[in-house]
Design a protein around this nucleic acid. Sequence first.
DNA 1: GCCATTCCCTACAAATCCGATAGGCTTTAT
DNA 2: ATAAAGCCTATCGGATTTGTAGGGAATGGC
Lengths: 151, 151
Amino acid sequence: MISNKAKYALRALLAIAAQPEGEALTSTEIARRHAIPHKFLEQILLDLKKSGILESRRGKAGGYVMLRPADTISFGEVLRIFDGPLAPLPCLSRNAYRRCEDCENEARCMIRREFARSYEASRQVLDSRTIGDALNEGQELPLAAQNRRVG
Amino acid sequence: MISNKAKYALRALLAIAAQPEGEALTSTEIARRHAIPHKFLEQILLDLKKSGILESRRGKAGGYVMLRPADTISFGEVLRIFDGPLAPLPCLSRNAYRRCEDCENEARCMIRREFARSYEASRQVLDSRTIGDALNEGQELPLAAQNRRVG
DNA sequence: GCCATTCCCTACAAATCCGATAGGCTTTAT
DNA sequence: ATAAAGCCTATCGGATTTGTAGGGAATGGC
């Protein structure tokens, strides 16, 4: 399970990236729209800023804007910021490798070998799919499916 | 990251399944071989027994034996016992579904849609690969690779 | 210059989970 | 009877999660 923090971060990013070019979105507005505790969200947005994903403007008419284009920000990158390494075992993380202290022979470890398969499969998805991708696909079936039910 | 508990459980299962047919393995022996805290391992083996994966014999010459064949026990099943649902979001778990309270429209949730992809990819692997599979492949290249280095 | 608005930063706290440790009870083979 | 093994429950320190709280700093409008 991913953390609330990561989920909130993704929600916020999707909202900010969906804004018209150059228009800022405030933390208050994001919190209101998505029912996220405001002060908690502030911390999250700050982390995203420190990671070089968002830019902020202070004062009245301030808010947050994308610093990098949405289609360069993968789900994996965001997850790593808030939930740490994606790898199921420390010895499988390229970014944050750590040997399993009790493992005698890494190359022959059967557990490592099996998890490497599953990790590779999910990493492939998480590191290739971006905020931009999600946003584009979200618009493909806009309200049609909904309205058809009502009508 | 998977928990130590799950990792220990998998180690133990691989060891027990590797025993000659019908021969029991004691918790003490498993703990010694794999450097697992003994009393902690006992709890884990107990859980595996309650889950119907292991069978136990008490008293002198006791120990643990597989109850179900090793090739019917997937990595996913073991993970679920110790670490809970594999799904990255509660709303994606078939087994332990829970609605995200703050999600307005599940079918149109972009986060859910993206994680469904990655989840499907890893679930595919974890639920299909079994303890038996791992054991068979582990024997394919036994000591050859190792000895060749030395020689 | 003042004020409201907004982001920035740090501290703290309750709850839960993780990774054991501990102690004793029950069953079984010899 | 005894030793060896599994069975069961309680406890515990530390880390992590999920916030809450309070205020400081910048900015724009008046």
